[in-house]
Design a binder for these strands. Sequence first.
DNA 1: ATAGATACTTACTTTTTGGTTAGTACTTGT
DNA 2: ACAAGTACTAACCAAAAAGTAAGTATCTAT
Lengths: 120, 120
Amino acid sequence: MYAVKESSTNHANKQGELSKCPVTFTLDRIGGRWKALILYHLIAGPQRYGALKKLIPAITEKMLIQQLKELEADTLVHREVKPVVPPHVTYSLTPAGTELAPVMQAMANWGLKYAAVEVG
Amino acid sequence: MYAVKESSTNHANKQGELSKCPVTFTLDRIGGRWKALILYHLIAGPQRYGALKKLIPAITEKMLIQQLKELEADTLVHREVKPVVPPHVTYSLTPAGTELAPVMQAMANWGLKYAAVEVG
DNA sequence: ATAGATACTTACTTTTTGGTTAGTACTTGT
DNA sequence: ACAAGTACTAACCAAAAAGTAAGTATCTAT
């Protein structure tokens, strides 16, 4: 016979939630499938909405806009609208977004090295 | 009246999938809510399963083990079992995992800086 | 005999994320 | 009058990720 299990639930563990570690803080803003990728493509400079769509062909319009909005809300990207028709909207990194560049750059470096390993 | 929409679906865009960018490659292995955090806590050195659980109180056992397994399958972490009872299992970074440290370190740096901004 | 320690495993449910498909606004050029 | 171009928006549904709660194995110490 075995003793009754104490529980390994998230709820029971939530006590530690407030004392978040810095990595968790960052992950909360740039985690997910798309955000780091979007930010990466903005490092080189501002991009129009349509340009981002082309740079990240796998993303759907819904996701691209949703993620851009969230990044904007977190003040990582800046959105600029030229009042013309058809619309002309440009996205760029804010200072806070720019300071994330090392993260994406490190990812790119690692990816370059190990993608090559797996192929070759 | 409007023209019929072409489609902005993922399927239609999948042509670009093979020519993956290096960031996507990296994200495929360390993306998600937990992996970067786990790797971060292994930078300082090998950790037992139970130690990781304490270092990351918000994670459930199921997730911790599942993520560790995936990281192991991607040869980012190494799992070592001492054949004793009770079990004694140690996780550590592989060379490939170690080379990801700059990513997590950059995240930690940014997190430290901007978490402070939000509070202060 | 049984409780304790450690590292898992499994079945099930909920939550979150993402995809599909369609539509809108507005102005210029034909 | 209408098609084209650009940047969205919204309703609905499916899939993936994560959470919950419980159980298992094995040896040591009591």
